[in-house]
Structures are given as structure tokens and as C-alpha cells.
Design a protein around this nucleic acid. Structure first.
Lengths: 138, 138
DNA sequence: GTATTGACTTGGAATCTGTCCATCGTAGGA
DNA sequence: TCCTACGATGGACAGATTCCAAGTCAATAC
């Protein structure tokens, strides 16, 4: 992600302090923050950043393909910066922790033509559910 | 689903007109209604039913494992009554139409132990995305 | 059949997410 | 350095869901 800012600048993105901070907050592995969490972390570095700007910037990063939007299991969507490397997600039913995972094979291949209802199917997202070591312990 | 009411009664569910109507509304194949749509259809049969009751009843059906909750691609969650028969979903990126599908094999098997991070993984949900025949036609 | 009681329902307020908009500020080119 | 178009701001707004206090009723016991 360190070169994300370079890439964005190369695409004609106007660089501002706010956008830089949002991009920095999303840097790392197994990061799956809600917009509100992004706002909280960004505010710690740039207190005057506004909620609208966080939403705008996240929306732009998503449509640029740099960030993946995950349908929230609870209410809020989560934002995953590893959009350039295809992966799926493993979610703890107890505490909600999320890990990026890489299953074998292509899940798309498992859907027979007879089950496609004439759709042109282009992608498959897999969500695995279970209990993390901590929540499974009691 | 016709025996859903029997099963619920057997589990000690207190049967009320409201709960019966909500359960009836969810009867069928390829049913994926939002809470608001459930309310609208339930109101047609029982005009005085309240929104809160619909949410309460849907929440109970979900925690009883009778109904599956689908994270809404747009805003509102959708409720799928076929929870007793495992299946996955095919969603049209154009119009949002949803079909129940049954891929070959068990997607759980595709996740190697090394990718499970110590979780006890118990389920996998697959969402296929593509364009339905109507939306694919230019 | 009637009384009883605790679970269920109600409707409106509150909350949580996310979007919109008019105005102000500023990055980056001239 | 100056301009200007694009970005940021914050407050209003909207949609979805949850909360709550008060009223209602299904199921059980008598």
C-alpha cells in the first residue's frame, strides 16, 4: 500500500492531507475497518477531517479498485485495502474478527451452467464462518 | 415451509396472528424479501401489524435457524426462508435480482488448514455476481 | 369457562449509517 | 504569485433498524 499514493497521483488524483491520511489508515494486512473506524483513526492524525470526506474518499478508492467494500455482517460496511490481491474472508461468529484467506481453486468453476439461470457470472465471493481460537476456548 | 408453524410451536413458540402471517409471507422458492417488503405483504393480510413486530419476528426466525439473513447489496438486509436446505446466491449486478443456486462440492473443503488461522470453520457462504439475461442485453 | 400471567405487540422516539448540498478552502498549473 | 476548478466541510436529510414503556393476549391452571 506504500505505493498507493504514487498510483493515485499517477491517475491524476489531486493529493490532499485528508486523502493521504485516509489512505494511510487503510495500510496493512487484515485491515477491515468501518467508515466510522476510519474516521476515528483519521481524526487522530487530522482532527478537522469531516465524516463526508471520509465517505467520499472511501467511495473513490472503491471505484478506483484500490479498496474492496465488504457487506457488513452487522450494520456498517467494511473497507478492505487488499483489493489488488484476490481473496476471501473468514469471520468469527463470536467476536466478529475477520481474516483474509486464500482458498484452493476457483469457486466460480463450481457453479454448473445449469445453475446459472442464463446469467453471465463474473465473480464469486466466499465468506467462511466459524469460531476463532479465543471464542472457541470456554 | 408448511410445517414451519408446527416446528415453531414444538419449540415452545407462542403462536400469534402476527407471527403466523410473517411466516406465511416467507413461504416459497427464490423468496428474498426486505423487512419492508415483508411488512407490506403482512399488512395486506393483517393491517394492524407493526414494523417492530416484523423485525422482532424476523430476528427470531433467524436465530432459530429457520430463515437466512442476506447482507443487502444496497441498503436493506434480505430474508431467505430456505435456511433448512443449504444453498448459495447468484446476484445480478444490474438489477439486484437474486437466485438460489447449488454449486458442486463443498466450498468448505477448498480452505486449507494453513489458511484457517486456528478457527473452527463451520460454514461457507458463496455469493456469485454477474448480469442476468435482461441486464446483459445491450 | 374464567382468571392469571408473562410473553408479545404496538407506535413513536431514538440511533446508526450513509448521502446531499451550499459554501469555503486550497492544490497545482499558468 | 495568482487563478480556478476540484476537494473539504458540517449540518441537514433520509433509510434501516433498534429501543422502550404501555397495552394486549395466548396458553396454562383452576
Amino acid at each position: 500500500m506504500s505505493n498507493l499514493l504514487e498510483r493515485l497521483r499517477g491517475r491524476g488524483w489531486r493529493m490532499t492531507a485528508q486523502r493521504r491520511v485516509v489512505a494511510e489508515v487503510l495500510d496493512g494486512e487484515h485491515i477491515h475497518l468501518t467508515a466510522d473506524e476510519v474516521l476515528a483513526r483519521a481524526s487522530a492524525r487530522l482532527p478537522e477531517i469531516s465524516r463526508a470526506t471520509v465517505y467520499n474518499t472511501l467511495g473513490e478508492l472503491v471505484s478506483l479498485g484500490e479498496v474492496m467494500e465488504l457487506p457488513g455482517d452487522g450494520r456498517a460496511k467494511r473497507y478492505d485495502p487488499n483489493a489488488h490481491r484476490p481473496h476471501h474472508h473468514l469471520v468469527c461468529s463470536g467476536c466478529g474478527a475477520i481474516r483474509d484467506v486464500h482458498p484452493d481453486g476457483d469457486p466460480l468453476a463450481a457453479l454448473p451452467a445449469a445453475e446459472r439461470f442464463g446469467f453471465s457470472v463474473s465473480a464469486a465471493e466466499v465468506t467462511y464462518r466459524g469460531l476463532c481460537p479465543v471464542c472457541a476456548a470456554p
